[in-house]
Design a protein around this nucleic acid. Structure first.
Lengths: 195, 195
DNA sequence: CGAAAATTTGACATGACTCAACTGGAGTGG
DNA sequence: CCACTCCAGTTGAGTCATGTCAAATTTTCG
């Protein structure tokens, strides 16, 4: 195969393995794209046209408030999906941006193609149900942290849960994800080192 | 039908309507339960055995931290689901409680039965995929609020998004959901009235 | 190497929490 | 019908967590 689709096949295999026909159908409907660092795959007011699977590299999805401050809603690196589901599903203009934090290779599926897969191969319904269930659990855990923990605790939790990701991200990006200012994160880090 | 299953059928209908066979299979696998105010349907350290559909009444799902403070992760009222998915899926002890805030009627599905439905009627995979996608969108919006808004803004947003629910909940419950103290919410409300 | 961005640091301001006292219903039992 | 308790809500004083602004320093990357 010319496209880098193998990581995606392996990924699905970890849920429910795909048959030859399903792999073929998937392969025919997936587009490979190479994205450079700082490039956008979604900008505010656009409709999110793709479900994007990250083969390599790293992305952030974020909103920009009225003061111009960014708020990171999600990161996605290898073997993860990134999409504004609300915009994608309902064809409505997104309030979010998705940008590459590193040069990246992705596989993208358009809505019509995904619908085709859902319709003719129910296993995709199953797989995507399970995938989003896991993402939901992850988000719920983050939510619980957010309503119950202090800045220090949120940072500790993040480092513990995503040690490999934390290495690749700037502290500014992490602060934006945790919902604190970069200056305050810097002070948290200074205190950690002292103790 | 003796059970109050009609609300559930109507609910599914708003996604993809069920066939006669699917309704029958669903009906055979769903248990109706009446829950009194303050009663638990899940407690910490138990495994969450049911996907629970709320026919009437209102629930909260929350954790209790080391100081004994409750943190509301989710509410569920009519035509909504409540379940600790992580515990349910992976048969692991829950860290959460689910308690009724009002007398309630629910329909519950056990894991084996849900698996049966998924296996023999792929439409349930589809329906539950779409259901959780919507819940994911909702949770993402809440997350975005949480990392970017002040207490006042979070409260405004909550009132605007769930006006009917806000009427039924005590301010203490709302504060716990927003991640602020009831005292601080009270001050926010006092300021709102002044302006 | 040099410009731009990220990080750190300090002084100060404000948001949000804590604790404790008070208020005002909603039961409950006499 | 009253006295009582029990909660939820309110309020105020003091404190702590976190944000803002600005400047200095370090790192990154073209």
């Amino acid at each position: 195969m010319s496209k880098e689709i193998i990581p995606l096949i392996s990924y699905f295999k970890s849920f429910i393995p795909l048959s030859k026909e399903e792999i073929k159908a998937l392969n025919e409907r997936v587009t490979e794209r190479r994205i450079k660092r700082k490039q956008f795959i979604l900008q505010e007011h656009e409709v999110c046209r793709y479900y994007t699977f990250v083969v390599s590299g790293c992305f952030k999805m974020y909103s920009v408030d009225k003061d111009g401050t960014e708020h990171n809603l999600q990161f996605a690196s290898e073997n993860d999906w990134i999409v504004d589901i609300d915009s994608f599903h309902n064809k409505k203009p997104s309030k979010l941006y998705i940008a590459a934090l590193e040069n990246a290779v992705v596989l993208q599926i358009e809505k019509n193609d995904l619908w085709y897969l859902y319709t003719y191969f129910p296993k995709f319904d199953r797989n995507f149900r399970v995938i989003i269930e896991y993402k939901f659990i992850e988000l719920q855990n983050r939510m619980l942290q957010n309503i119950s923990a202090t800045g220090d605790e949120k940072y500790e939790f993040f480092l513990k849960q995503y040690p490999q990701l934390a290495n690749r991200l700037s502290n500014t990006q992490i602060a934006s994800y945790l919902g604190i200012t970069p200056q305050f994160l810097s002070k948290i880090r200074a205190k950690r080192i002292r103790n």
